[in-house]
Design a protein around this nucleic acid. Structure first.
Lengths: 124, 124
DNA sequence: ATAAAATATGAATACTTGTTCATATATTCA
DNA sequence: TGAATATATGAACAAGTATTCATATTTTAT
């Protein structure tokens, strides 16, 4: 398995593996895009918003009541989710209804939940 | 669909929907746990580490060569991934080999990739 | 037109985080 | 034992971020 044993600083320890990994490594742009998506899901407030919307749409006011947070805080987070296309919205008069943008989001969210359940089981 | 029309500040706009959402809303602890997992995936460097390890294990030195980053930076990120059980490691002498901890991680990572592909298609 | 209500947003602040630099730890080999 | 090497880690700094507060925008109703 171990091919090259030269010093790490100058050459590389496992040349073949390094080359193989380099070939399949995602590029910086893709990594950035991906990081952005996961970043959107990396905040408790945003996850609770997604949880609240996982059933059906809610207006901003409803959301702030459900989450027990200020309208402003919710609105700021919604803007972020909106900009990343995780949620969509429709206006009805002065009320704005938010909903999950598509099934991909729910998928990611639920896979994440599965993982936490998995981890919780490991701890017990 | 719209049940209650009282003012948002005092009562709630859509009382039934708010109650329904409140019942299924994930609790703060779960949201925190989940946020932690997604946080681990929310950084380009860590995603590239996961990408590099998605084929098979690599030592820290290999990783820093593949990513073109300092050993210290890689090591710090590995510690984070380790603490969250996203990667496991085995020592062989003074060399430490890292690998993805289990299939859950790969699952999340690949779902994320699918989503970026999905988004890219939308933009085009 | 004017007031009221729902949502959005800019600025400020406190907090978190990724990298670097220097150094510590641990393991091998002479 | 002592030097060399792979990895880990603490401190510091720069950059990013979540919330609050005040205020702007938009729409409805009088």
């Amino acid at each position: 398995m171990i091919k090259s044993l030269a010093a790490c600083e100058e050459t590389v320890i496992h040349e073949d593996e390094v080359l193989a990994a380099s070939r399949t490594l995602i590029d910086g742009q893709t990594a950035g895009r991906l990081a952005q998506i996961f970043s959107a899901l990396s905040d408790p407030t945003r996850l609770r918003i997604i949880s609240a919307l996982s059933d059906h749409e809610l207006c901003v006011c409803d959301l702030s009541v459900v989450l027990g947070m200020s309208q402003s805080a919710v609105s700021h987070q919604l803007r972020l989710l909106r900009n990343l296309n995780l949620v969509k919205y429709r206006k009805e008069g002065r009320i704005v209804y938010y909903a999950l943008d598509d099934e991909h989001i729910r998928e990611l969210y639920e896979r994440g939940l599965e993982h936490t359940a998995h981890q919780k089981k490991l701890e017990a």
